[in-house]
């Protein structure tokens, strides 16, 4: 049936909150289906050239046309929603934690993401503030953190600090915030 692959594609997206692997094969199937429907439209029109105002011919063409539009719309919704999820993750996990995720992205999506990062970076630069930092309102300059994963040493205003797994530190928030967001440190409240 026309459009069933496209409907499945949207359903797949709806049933998961995470980014599933990019469904390249469904997209290809839909593209082939859409092209063949287009050919059917052309052949119907040329076959019934004299009877184009007949309701049955009109209805046939209409059904074909709607199927094409529907396929297109489902795929674009799929692509759009994925971009939206990618961006949300980009904001939540800062730019680094994508190694795991990037296996699930298509080549074009990876390309989009890197261009998006550049665009966002340019905007932040032109307003002079890093918008992705400090998603929560700051309470104090220093926070207490517990190290969950070894991070090596970091440089703060008062010297270098070795972040070894299992140790706890009292450090300037600005220096360790990105590590907390990546999950390498835990903020002790």
């Amino acid at each position: 049936m026309f459009g069933s692959v496209a409907a499945d594609l949207v359903r797949e997206l709806k049933n998961s909150k995470w980014l599933l692997p990019f469904n390249e094969s469904s997209l290809r199937t839909i593209a082939i289906e859409t092209r063949s429907i287009m050919e059917m439209i052309t052949s119907t029109v040329s076959q019934f050239r004299e009877k184009l105002d007949q309701p049955e011919v009109l209805a046939t063409v209409m059904v074909f046309h709607r199927s094409v539009q529907r396929n297109k719309r489902c795929v674009l919704a799929y692509l759009y929603k994925r971009l939206e999820r990618m961006r949300r993750m980009r904001w939540e996990y800062s730019s680094i934690n994508f190694a795991e995720l990037s296996n699930n992205l298509s080549m074009h999506e990876r390309d989009y993401l890197s261009k998006y990062n550049r665009l966002l970076g340019e905007y932040c630069e032109s307003v002079g503030l890093d918008l992705t930092a400090e998603l929560q309102p700051p309470k104090d300059l220093y926070i207490e953190v517990r190290v969950l994963k070894d991070c090596g040493s970091i440089l703060t205003d008062s010297g270098t600090v070795n972040l070894k797994s299992g140790t706890a530190h009292f450090l300037p928030r600005v220096d360790v915030e990105h590590l907390v967001r990546q999950g390498a440190l835990e903020h002790v409240i």
Binding site: L27, R28, I30, A31, T34, R35, M38, K72, V75, L76, L79, Y80, L83, S106, H108, E109, D111, Y112, K115, Y116, L119
Partner: peptide, 17 residues
């Protein structure tokens, strides 16, 4: 950026119209 992504991911595979 978004429209370029739509084009390269899917729309390029469709007939030009």
């Amino acid at each position: 950026l978004m429209e370029a992504h739509f084009q390269s991911s899917f729309l390029d595979q469709l007939p030009e119209k």
